[in-house]
Every structure is written in C-alpha cells, then in structure tokens.
Amino acid sequence: MRPLPELTAENTAFWTGGANGKLMIAFCKDCASAIHPPQLICPQCWCEEIESKPVSGTGTVYSYTVNHQPWAPDMKVPFALAVVDVDGAPGVRVSAEVVNADPDSITIGQQMRVSFMNVDDVWFPQWEPVL
C-alpha cells in the first residue's frame, strides 16, 4: 500500500490533476516562476498569488536510481525512480517511478512523458519513456 499525501490548498492541483491527464505545476502570477513542490508564497519574489497550470507532461531525465531491495512485503523489484526536468516549468524537477520500461534501460538525458496511477483521490505522476 502506497502512503497518500495530505491534500492541502497548495498541493491539491498537483496530486489531483492526473484525473484529467494533466501534470499541474504551481506558478507565481507576478514573476511567472515555476514552483515545485507547490507553496503558498513564491520563493523568488514573495508574491502570494500562486496558480496551478497544466504543463506539457514531458521532460528529460536529470538523474535516476534502480532499486533492487524490496522495502515492503510484495514490493516488486527491480524498479526505477527518475528525477525529470519538466518541460515548460524551468527549474522544476519531479521525482517519480518509471513505468513501461526495463529499469536498466533508463539513461540520463532520456525523454519522458507523464502518466498517472490513481489511488483514492490522489493521482501519482509516473514517468515513461518517449519512444
């Protein structure tokens, strides 16, 4: 069982955007900085007007790891986790599980696209290679 994040005013759009197939990223209305993880105040200009917007849902692998150790009973291994630079959101990196790929095939610089796994009211982002 995957633990679920607490949904708050600042992060609900990120965790529920997958219901509509959208990767939602917070942006400052004043300086247009992308903000992740989502926050109530822009860390660049201190503006309190933050809005979540859909981005393309693609990006480039910045880093990754392949896990071979089952951390919980019935956990399937190996699996890969990737840190992806998100297109359309400068400075934002989203870490998530890589799906629909051999974990040993992941490379730095590889192009990815988002998909989502639904658990209750939460839509977890996942990355899959762009073929």
Rank of each mutant, 00 (worst) to 15 (best):
C31A: 10
A72I: 12
W71H: 15
V66G: 12
P103G: 08
D74Q: 15
P43C: 02
V55K: 03
P54V: 06
P70C: 05
S33A: 15
A9F: 14
P125K: 03
E128M: 12
N11I: 05
P103L: 11
M75W: 10
K53E: 12
P78V: 02
N20I: 09
E49N: 11
H36M: 00
D121I: 14
W127R: 06
V114A: 09
D74S: 14
I108L: 06
A101T: 00
I41M: 12
C45L: 02
T12N: 10
G57P: 00
M1E: 13
V83Y: 14
L131M: 14
N11D: 06
Y64S: 01
M112L: 11
G88I: 03
P90M: 04
Q39G: 10
Q111N: 13
A82V: 05
L81A: 10
N100S: 11
P70G: 06
A13E: 13
A9P: 01
A72M: 14
A34M: 08
M24H: 03
L81C: 10
H36E: 01
T107W: 11
W127P: 00
Q39L: 05
S52G: 08
F14E: 02
N100C: 07
P70D: 07
L23D: 00
G59A: 10
T58W: 02
K76M: 10
M75I: 08
L81V: 12
P37R: 12
E51T: 12
W127I: 09
T58D: 01
T107L: 13
A13F: 05
G59S: 04
Y64V: 07
G109T: 05
C31F: 01
R93K: 14
F116T: 02
R2W: 15
